[in-house]
């Protein structure tokens, strides 16, 4: 949905989104990285009616950017910077927990 406007000088950061390798840039938030990768749509499905959603506000207020990061669900992707090796999983409905 987004592309880089400039010849980006920031170092690359390798993450995976739903198992796919994605190259992000230092300074990207998780949401920015997913929106730029373009390989995964929709961003998530809601916990209430299972409708597709994507980040709306990018400033931490709307909670439409929720993703699972390194096994922890319902995290605000728009507030969390990417880091090398981060494993991101899209959410399909309600939060899942493991015992």
């Amino acid at each position: 949905m987004f592309k880089r406007a400039t010849n980006h000088q920031e170092p690359a950061v390798q993450i995976t989104v739903d198992g796919l390798p994605v190259t992000a840039r230092r300074g990207d938030t998780v949401s920015a990285a997913i929106l730029t990768a373009g390989c995964v749509e929709p961003y998530r499905y809601t916990a209430v009616n299972g409708t597709p959603r994507a980040p709306y506000c990018m400033m931490g207020v709307c909670f439409d950017c929720l993703v699972t990061i390194d096994g922890i669900g319902n995290r605000q992707g728009c507030l969390i910077p990417v880091s090398d090796g981060m494993v991101i999983t899209r959410q399909n409905g309600k939060r899942e927990i493991e015992s």
Partner: peptide, 13 residues
């Protein structure tokens, strides 16, 4: 007075 905590929606467990 009573207090209650409520979590996010979670798969049934």
């Amino acid at each position: 007075r009573g207090q209650i905590l409520v979590t996010e929606r979670t798969v049934p467990f």
